[in-house]
Design a protein around this nucleic acid. Sequence first.
DNA 1: CGGATCGTTGATCAACTTCAACGGTCGTGG
DNA 2: CCACGACCGTTGAAGTTGATCAACGATCCG
Lengths: 195, 195
Amino acid sequence: MNGFEVLFRHIEQKVSLTDQEREDIYRHFTPKFLLKKQYLLSESEVCRHMAFVCSGLLKTYHIDEKGIEHISLFGWEGWWLSDFSSFLTGIASVSYIDAIEDASLLLISRENYEALTLRVPKMDRYFRILYQNSIVTKERRLRNSVTYPASERYLEFVESNQQIIDRIPQNFIASYLGIAPETLSRIKHKISKRQ
Amino acid sequence: MNGFEVLFRHIEQKVSLTDQEREDIYRHFTPKFLLKKQYLLSESEVCRHMAFVCSGLLKTYHIDEKGIEHISLFGWEGWWLSDFSSFLTGIASVSYIDAIEDASLLLISRENYEALTLRVPKMDRYFRILYQNSIVTKERRLRNSVTYPASERYLEFVESNQQIIDRIPQNFIASYLGIAPETLSRIKHKISKRQ
DNA sequence: CGGATCGTTGATCAACTTCAACGGTCGTGG
DNA sequence: CCACGACCGTTGAAGTTGATCAACGATCCG
């Protein structure tokens, strides 16, 4: 199965496509392959593409004044990645995106994104639904971060990411949860004693 | 100016409308007026509508196990409010929405939302763009919450909400920032000494 | 084999919370 | 119209959670 099949399946979960539309979509994307540790995007660069992940695993993060990495999102098969703010406005990105595992991507540029949504209005609908779901997820994450202590956020993360949790090093999970690696280590220790 | 003019202006900042489309949109919304302290939505209710704020001021929040209110969003003229997760899935809401000031709203039900986006595809585009911007905002907020201490988050909040800041009581701002009211009081004290 | 990186553990530290008390203001009912 | 209660913001003192700094063992990879 090549990358476009993954993308078409993803789109057709939300809207149905004619052969012509599939063809139109096809012509607006560019494949890209990334080796482990390679960057898709660096801070202060402008984010020129949105990336659909066909296979592999990536992380989106930013680095604070103290040099600490804060992961905002993991992306694997079926996820979209970009620095949205930079992609939409053309200002410099505050984020990095790089590959935790070798990854196969489909890229769409800003111009092609505009062109595609105008040419295939169903893509407005597809992205509308995609973004709807993304907002629900982000709202829950924000809510959890103010409501629950680190230990419960970890348990929720394990719960809702069973498929990929063993592909992600522990210090990356700590970064995603917004805690120090040492804290996560202690949390796991406590949890394992408790049962 | 009645509420629909506010809504139409908001939509036409993103897509152009024909008279027919304005008419279609008009028929999918219901006006609603809310007095200060009245609820638009309570926890464990299903969120049946998305609300567009024509005037007034509201807050969206949830209450944790300790009974503490956590505000996730203030909404005034030009904002959309709902418990998105509940609205889309029909599960019970985890959020409350109530009025800080008397408010005039336009409501759209789930069925009308579906019907309207199918009848007027430009509305898919409108919401797609709306949600894009919402995601950018939520991502920045999440990034700030892990990157910066409370005092800097407060300064950024003041900076980017000058128009309405004096309409919001201080304990609500503390709740939005995810800190105790006492902490915000101390932060303001320090800042005022510093200059 | 050797260096780098990762996870763990201990000790100390900082940010923010919690609990408690007090003064000011606002709105309401007598 | 005034008085009272409720609520809000402030200040102080003590308590918690998680961060930071440091050291060490294990593993991975060249």
